[in-house]
Design a binder for these strands. Structure first.
Length: 520
RNA sequence: GGUCCCUUCGUCUAUCGGUUAGGACGAGAGAUUUUCAUUCUCUAAAGAGCGGUUCGAUUCCGCUAGGGACUACCA
């Protein structure tokens, strides 16, 4: 069994944008597959025709492309075990449903949803199983002729799995070990719906995983309760020998309070729960995406990987390659992880700082353009390098308080950088910084500095520094903060020489003269 | 309600019977500093509770409590 080629799959349902929890599940599948030189299959589980959302499939594909999670086969990737869209596999499922029916491991049920609901209301804790199926309208309680006639008349029916009660079903989970459930608590699950000629998840899932030779099923914990049913299905088909190994991942939980992570948490606290921006085709409602919110894909992947797994050492920043090497399902935690989006900011910052400024120059140029400012990529890159270690204020989603945090996104830069391109037009004498640093003698000092700088041929940082240092040395002046008032107007910005060099001699002198004239 | 899963600092986690219970985010303090930062140093901060097993339990077992998931002709 261990000789089998590793083949895993990520099989979302195209009912909307891909949730960040799904992204993590896919990531773990990917890391596992790559580590073992296996294949990663992309399957679309669209067996619920009512919940189909146009665009969802394309969205999911694009999201993985952005994140750098690659598939070897599946919808849009090709492969010889297709089709990979379940809605295109109707005939395959029909064949296997028949096999179960013929072997008396499943039966046909005619109970309508209304009848079922009525039953559930009248009987407390009603469950369609061995104890009740003989009271229902199905092929177990009706004659063959009756059943055939109903079907011939076009009656809508379902096929239910006939679960034998009283058996201990074992699920050997890589993360959780041996999980045992008594088959009596399982209900006779609907496997197939004649209404749309489609199977339900359970049947489609087992048939596809078997046919696609999936070796490991790595999925969310929400599937653990139905895992015994799946084991029983493999057995019913006689596929137990090649049944995949299971690994049920812990869930992603709300950052605060109880429950699993939802879109509402993101909206409230100010972080995305989807990889990409999503516009709901029905309502037009827009949901934030990591990509559009300025996250780097490597940061998102790294952050997500560590929510529920860690390599056992102290390394947190890892490339995809390192994660592939170190990943270990048995080191995944069993408990759900609260979604610590603040740490996500930190990851983004780390990756942002690791990139050369030139990587962000085009994006920064665009950012500036939105503010009505034309800048070159070179200017953008210089600005980034001068300002990337600053911090900004933000409103904490939880307390509503204004807090500070390091610059973690390039979009954080603008509020910090306006003075690079826009000269102060007035000065606020009540401003703490201005008040403290613009003194009686400041205008005269600045005039001196102005004249020194005006005499410079070379306006580079080094050249300025040499000239200014010499003056500082002999005069004993401390011109820095007053100079900052001139060029910035307030207490922010980079090193003064760097700023002056960026602005250029002409603009620097102009701003100084303006301040001298206006702050006298 | 029933079934299953889970439980170490505020958060993510390390520890695979013997540790001063480690790291990271976040928080606080100090140093550096040409504003604000960065950076550096330091500090606070945890084994849910109760019983066992054992020479010894965070680690193994049980119970309790708490949290989570599932309980559809959805996945």
């Amino acid at each position: 069994m261990s000789e089998r080629k590793v083949r895993v799959r990520f099989a979302p349902s195209p009912t909307g944008p891909l949730h960040i929890g799904g992204v993590r599940t896919a990531l773990y599948n990917y890391l596992f597959a790559r580590q073992h030189g296996g294949d990663m299959v992309f399957r679309i589980e669209d067996t619920d025709s009512n919940r189909f959302v146009p665009g969802a499939e394309a969205y999911i594909i694009e999201a993985f492309k952005w994140l750098g999670i690659e598939f070897d086969e599946g919808v849009s990737f090709g492969g010889d075990k297709g089709p990979y869209r379940q809605s295109e596999r109707r005939d395959i499922y029909k064949k296997y449903v028949k096999q179960l029916l013929d072997a008396d491991k499943a039966y046909i049920a005619f109970d309508t949803p209304e009848e079922l609901n009525a039953k559930r209301e009248s009987v407390a804790n009603f469950q369609y199983d061995a104890s009740t199926r003989l009271e229902m309208r199905n092929s177990l309680t009706m004659s063959k002729e009756e059943v055939d006639q109903l079907i011939a008349d076009g009656a809508v029916y379902t096929v239910r799995f006939k679960i034998e009660p009283g058996e201990e079903v074992h699920v050997n989970d890589i993360i959780r070990g041996d999980v045992v459930i008594n088959s009596s608590i399982l209900d006779d699950k609907v496997l197939y719906k004649s209404a749309d000629e489609l199977p339900t998840y359970h049947l489609a899932n087992i048939v596809d995983d078997h046919l696609m030779e999936i070796s490991h099923v790595i999925r969310g914990e929400e599937w653990l309760p139905s895992a015994p049913l799946h084991v029983l299905l493999y057995r019913a088909f006689g596929w137990e020998d090649t049944m995949p190994r299971f690994a049920h991942l812990p869930l992603l939980l709300k950052p605060t309070g109880n429950g699993k992570l939802s879109k509402r948490d993101g909206d409230k606290l100010g972080f995305p729960v989807f990889p990409l921006l999503w516009t709901d085709p029905a309502t037009g409602a827009i949901s934030h995406g990591y990509r559009e919110d300025g996250y780097l894909p490597e940061a998102v992947v790294n952050f997500l990987a560590l929510l529920g797994w860690n390599p056992g050492d102290d390394q947190e920043i890892m490339t995809m390659e390192e994660m592939i090497q170190k990943f270990d399902l048995s080191k995944c935690s069993k408990a759900g992880a609260k979604f610590d989006y603040v740490k996500g900011w930190w990851f983004n910052r780390e990756y942002m700082l690791a990139h050369p400024a030139s990587d962000f120059a085009p994006a920064i140029v665009n950012l500036l353009k939105e503010q009505g400012i034309e800048a070159t990529e070179e200017q953008a890159a210089q600005m980034f390098d001068m300002m990337k270690t600053k911090n900004i204020e933000y409103i904490d989603g939880q307390s509503g308080q204004t807090k500070k945090r390091n610059v973690s996104f390039i979009a954080d830069l603008w509020p910090l950088c306006d003075f690079f391109f826009v000269a102060p037009t007035s000065f606020n004498r009540e401003d703490k910084f201005v008040k403290k640093n613009w003194k009686e003698e400041s205008a005269a000092d600045m005039q001196e500095l102005h004249d020194i700088l005006a005499g410079l041929e070379d306006f580079s940082v080094e050249s300025q520094k040499a000239a200014v240092d010499a003056w500082v040395e002999t005069s004993g002046k401390k011109p820095w903060n007053a100079w900052r008032v001139c060029l910035v107007g307030e207490g922010k910005g980079p090193d003064m020489h760097e700023l002056a060099a960026f602005l250029g001699k002409e603009e620097t002198l102009r701003r100084m003269q303006f301040a001298i004239d206006n702050l006298k």
